[in-house]
C-alpha cells in the first residue's frame, strides 16, 4: 500500500507551491514597503489615509449596487423561466453568454456606449439627446450587472426548480394568495439560491478590474483595480498585497454572512 503516498506527490507539491506558498507570500509581502523594508506602514497607511478607506467603501458600495440590481432582474427571470415548458433549453440560453469571453462582452459596450454609439443614437431618437455614457459610474454598474446576470439566474433557478410543488399547494390550501405564498414560502425556501448568487457576484464585483478599466475609465476604482494598479503600474507590491489581504478578508466576511444560518437543512423528501 506504499503506492498511496506516491499518488499524492505531484498533488501535494501543487498544494505546497501554488496554494499555500502564494497565499503566505501575499501576506508576507504586505509587510514590506516599496524599498523592501519590513514595516507595518502599509496597514497603517491603509487605515489612516482616507483615500484607501474611501476606495474600499466605494468598491463595496458599487459591488452592493451591482449585486442588488442583478438580483432584482434575475429573481423574476428565474421565476418566469421555471414556468416555461422547455425550461432547461431556456436556461441553456441564459448560460450561453457566459461562454463568451468576458473581455469581448465588455468591449461590445465600448461601441454601444460611445458618443456616436447605438445607445446615444437611440437617446437622440427619443429626444433625450446624447450623453457621455462611457466612463461613468452608471455604465460601469450596467456592464458589470450585464456580465453577472447569468450567475445570479442559475442558482435561483435551481433552487426554484428544487422547490417541492406541494409546498406551494399547501400554502394556497391554507388560504395564502399568490403574493403571500411568494413572501412566506417561495422566497424563504429559495434563499439558499439567492445567497449562492450573492456570493458568486459580490466578490468578483469587488475585484473585476478589467471592466472598471475599459468601461469605468479611471473614474471607478475598486479593490481589484487598486491591486492591479499597485502590482502592475506603480510597482508598490507591499500596498497591493495589503489591499489583497483586505479583499481576502472581505471574501471570508461575505461567505460567513451568506452561510446557511439556521443549519436546518430540513428538506423533506
Amino acid at each position: 500500500m506504499h503506492k498511496k503516498t506516491t499518488y499524492l506527490i505531484p498533488y501535494m507539491l501543487w498544494i505546497g507551491l501554488f496554494v499555500i506558498a502564494p497565499m503566505a507570500l501575499i501576506l508576507y509581502q504586505s509587510f514590506f514597503n516599496i524599498s523592501g523594508h519590513f514595516t507595518m506602514g502599509n496597514y497603517e497607511q491603509y487605515l489612516t489615509n482616507g483615500v484607501y478607506l474611501k476606495m474600499t467603501f466605494n468598491s463595496i458600495l458599487y459591488a452592493l449596487i451591482i449585486t442588488m440590481s442583478t438580483l432584482l432582474i434575475s429573481y423574476p427571470t428565474a421565476l418566469l423561466l421555471n414556468r416555461l415548458k422547455n425550461k432547461q433549453f431556456w436556461l441553456l440560453l441564459v448560460i450561453l453568454p457566459t461562454w463568451i469571453n468576458l473581455l469581448l462582452k465588455t468591449y461590445a459596450f465600448i461601441g454601444l456606449f460611445s458618443q456616436n454609439g447605438s445607445v446615444n443614437d437611440f437617446l437622440r431618437f427619443v429626444g433625450v439627446g446624447s450623453h457621455q455614457i462611457l466612463f461613468t459610474d452608471a455604465s460601469f454598474i450596467f456592464v458589470a450587472a450585464y456580465i453577472e446576470i447569468p450567475f445570479m439566474i442559475l442558482p435561483i433557478f435551481n433552487s426554484l426548480a428544487e422547490l417541492n410543488p406541494s409546498m406551494i399547494n399547501a400554502s394556497r390550501d391554507l388560504g395564502a394568495n399568490s403574493w403571500q405564498t411568494f413572501r412566506r414560502v417561495i422566497l424563504p425556501l429559495t434563499m439558499p439560491g439567492v445567497k449562492a448568487g450573492f456570493q458568486a457576484i459580490f466578490i468578483p464585483s469587488l475585484s473585476l478590474f478589467m471592466i472598471t478599466r475599459l468601461i469605468g475609465g479611471n473614474r471607478v476604482i475598486t479593490l481589484g483595480t487598486a491591486i492591479e494598479e499597485h502590482f502592475l503600474v506603480t510597482q508598490n507590491w507591499g500596498m497591493g498585497s495589503t489591499i489583497g489581504v483586505v479583499l481576502i478578508l472581505a471574501m471570508f466576511v461575505v461567505m460567513y454572512l451568506t452561510r446557511d444560518r439556521k443549519a436546518k437543512g430540513g428538506r423533506i423528501q
Binding site: 507551491l17 501575499i26 468578483p204 491591486i227 502590482f231 498585497s241 479583499l247
Partner: peptide, 16 residues
C-alpha cells in the same frame, strides 16, 4: 483556488 478572486491568484503567483 476555486473561491479566490482572480486578482488574488494572479498577484500572489506574480509574487511567487
Amino acid at each position: 483556488l476555486m473561491v479566490s478572486p482572480d486578482v488574488i491568484i494572479g498577484a500572489s503567483f506574480l509574487i511567487f
